[in-house]
Amino acid sequence: MTLKKATAYRLSDNSKALLIFYFVIFAVMLSFILRTTLFTSSNYGTLGGLDASSMIFIFVVSLIFAESFKMLQQNGCSRKTIFLSFVYSTIILAVVMAVVDSLTAMLMDIITSNYESGFFQIYQARYQSMRSAQHFFEGLLWYVTAYVMMGAIGFFITNLYYRMGKLLKVLVSVGVPVFFVIILPILSNLTGGAIYEGIKNFFDFAWGFSHGFNPYFSMVSASIFSVILGGLAFLLIRRAVPKQ
């Protein structure tokens, strides 16, 4: 009962941002349609990857944690309920956005041939066209798992920062970029590029690139990442206390 209300609160909290987000996205798309189909026949290039914006959106809304956490605590929600409300609201948001993005991609392909979704750009070797049923349904599933994973990443990061002290925050904020920009290239050089090759192979496998661009590999990988990050986020939130 409380979980249902907490989930409703989370969804309501995100709804205004979601409406603004799609208003901007549709405005961009509409201006693109007008430019390419109505006013001129000249080639303006292609528009694509707007679904990547959806990933960034769901990542960003998942980062906003402290306000919801306090509001739900004020209204008698346990941390377990708060965590589950984040999980459910993220999944619902991911499904809604996946449906909207899949339909939009198909519609854009019908209206203007100059649009390519991010999903199609990655996995186009597998599909004849963006209008095929296979593309639509596999794309839909792919979006859901990818969006949930982005939500899990955001939720994990925000929980991690919420639980850390000032010193640890600084160490992580500096340490992570230093690791990726300085230490990892050095280590990779020392191993004759084996580390980068290993990372590339891992992602090629995880995203299905090494298996004929099979999106199901990516869906399973994203789901596993989501479960791992969600589990870690739960460990962090279960002892969290509201901060002033």
């Binding site: 009962m1 008698g76 346990s78």
Partner: peptide, 9 residues
């Protein structure tokens, strides 16, 4: 960590 108890508070 008990929703049903916290509903009373």
């Amino acid at each position: 960590e008990n929703d049903s108890a916290q509903r009373k508070i």
